[in-house]
Design a protein around this nucleic acid. Structure first.
Lengths: 339, 339
DNA sequence: CAAAACACCGAAAACGTTTTCGTAGAATTA
DNA sequence: TAATTCTACGAAAACGTTTTCGGTGTTTTG
């Protein structure tokens, strides 16, 4: 139960001053070789490690970055965290994670807590509720204090900060085009409400691909699912009413739910209905049939976000008022759900 | 870009002392109502929030708990984090997450970093490499400093700390018995190497169930998969050589891989082969057929771990040298993979 | 041999809080 | 009116570092 060793205790023990100990441990030439080695050996023997909190207070930086995401049980967010953590650790940073649980209030509370000295900067993706309200005062408050934010995936367009996104419009466009090239003509889209920007953008890409080829857009062929947990019935109804031969889903959960519903209705995937999904996660790889997906590269996005943030943190703190939006290329991963 | 407000700045601005400001903000009766409200209003207007680092240094506690897990992209661990985070936030704590990536060295480095003042206590699950080496010096170092640890799932038996586990032996026992009751007689087990304690214990439970009924144990009916990423071929070979009518898998990934392999071989699940898996995650719910699983209740385990840790942290710090091992009950969730 | 240079170390400030203690003046008591 | 108690505030220490500055005593220089 030996209490934590401090400079002061070493100093007392060795009958020198605190400053001498500090300097000796940093190999300062101000201290004689004799004293230096004596102190260093003592420190090593008793495994001295400087207290992080004291260092943070002194240096006015914590070497920690805060991550705020809606949920961690979503595979995409988990991969992002993984990427953030990897890059952060490489550069000597640690990661503090808070979950908003898709709630605006929790997002605000968590940001407030972290912003008071706990971290040097944020990596975050907005909660659904925040997207719906379009209330970004908490983000502004933080940036006004000079604390950098890097947003990813679910971003606020009118906040000045770095952003890491995928080109949702383009990706949906390509995916839709892919289905059209497979001679599917009666396409359906399973999306989220428009206030979730990825839902809106992917819908836009879907429509653009159809328009580009001169097809008209049937709004009834677009389903917007609000409640992701209990999406089964809505999706089933949707599939019953339209006679689709191709489906685009904005996440793999919708896709696999649709796939199972279709098979339950006696329709074959991919022969009768081809399916493409966003989010290349576990489900896509292991569903039956496996799903053709658009890979979102969460790991890469997380890594980029962390790298960007740390670069900002360590740039000589002159107001580097240029903000970048990095668009991560997606890739279509073909599997069994498309012919 | 208004720099962060401090007590000192408020004091200067309002021409009082720092201590007066501090007391006023904590509503001390030592300060006249007049001065008090003046200071409080000023603080509110400019949104003063005390600096967490300074508080941590002063109070010698950070109100943060460190979580070290092997991977975050595994659904089980993600649910645990979710539970930890929920309980921690309820009690005013924040969560710092580090990933060991199943590496001993990274586990040690991360623990060392966190232990130097960054957090008040640990919630953790050991890396595979640590389990293999049985080297727990880093854990001892931490506990010797008086910093509490709560371990879950992959625990070190001979470290004195609180533990949250499921009764792996019992659960495997019950699952095996379940298969036997379904009149499956030729059972196979897909497990991990024995140094992963959950693998060892589940194997033990499997064997016990067989012995209890007087069946003899065929070691060739037990596959131990080392490399979880590329388990496909090994599992396929295993299924080719034995003519199993029932399978127990120690995680859902093995189970769904086996399920697909079997179907590829023309064997029907569950008619020809029934399958039960540990870990009730996404795959089990959405695979075809859906999998009967043993729910590990990660959320609950995480919540319990956090609660236990915080209780320890806030107990009057007298050496509360009693350690508890909580066994979380599992439940068998029947789905399509068993008849 | 006096002056300058140098080697070695300690005191103290700073980071932002909280808290204990001291103290001035005002109000109360005897 | 003198002694006492309050009221309202400030000074300073403490948490554990790093770093600047100053000050010894010894060695080198002219």
């Amino acid at each position: 139960m030996a209490q934590k060793l401090t400079l002061k205790k070493i100093a007392q023990e060795l009958k020198v001053s605190i400053s001498t100990v500090s300097k000796a441990l940093r190999d300062s030439h101000e201290i004689s070789v004799e004293t230096r080695t004596k102190i260093q050996e003592y420190a090593k023997q008793y495994n001295f490690k400087p207290n992080n909190i004291a260092l943070s207070l002194k240096n006015q930086k914590t070497k920690k970055i805060g991550v705020i995401i809606p949920e961690i049980v979503h595979h995409f967010f988990a991969t992002v965290i993984s990427g953030v953590e990897r890059v952060a650790n490489e550069k000597g940073y640690q990661v503090i994670i808070c979950l908003s649980g898709e709630s605006f209030d929790k997002e605000v509370v968590n940001m407030d807590m972290l912003a008071n000295g706990s971290i040097d900067g944020f990596v975050m993706s907005l909660s659904k509720e925040t997207m719906e309200r379009q209330d970004f005062h908490h983000l502004r408050e933080v940036t006004n204090q000079g604390m950098p934010i890097v947003m990813f995936d679910r971003v606020a367009d009118d906040i000045a900060c770095d952003k890491i996104i995928i080109d949702d419009v383009e990706a949906a466009n390509k995916a839709t085009d892919f289905l059209l090239r497979k001679n599917r003509r009666n396409l359906g889209l399973i999306s989220t409400p428009d206030y979730v920007n990825v839902g809106r953008l992917r819908t836009q890409g879907f429509k653009e691909a159809l328009m580009k080829r001169g097809y008209e857009i049937d709004e009834s062929a677009i389903l917007k699912v609000e409640d992701i947990e209990n999406c089964g019935d809505k999706i089933k109804d949707f599939l019953m009413t339209g006679n689709y031969d191709g489906l685009l889903a904005v996440n793999e959960l919708f896709a696999v739910t649709a796939s199972k519903a279709l098979q339950g209705m006696g329709r074959k995937v991919p022969d009768d209905v081809a399916i493409v999904a966003f989010t290349d996660g576990m489900l896509s790889k292991y569903a039956s049939p496996t799903l053709t997906t658009i890979g979102q590269k969460g790991e890469e996005m997380g890594g980029l976000a962390a790298a960007k943030l740390i670069q900002k943190l360590e740039s000589d703190h002159q107001e580097d008022e240029t903000y970048e939006t990095v668009i991560v290329k997606t890739s279509l991963i073909e599997r069994e759900s498309t012919p």
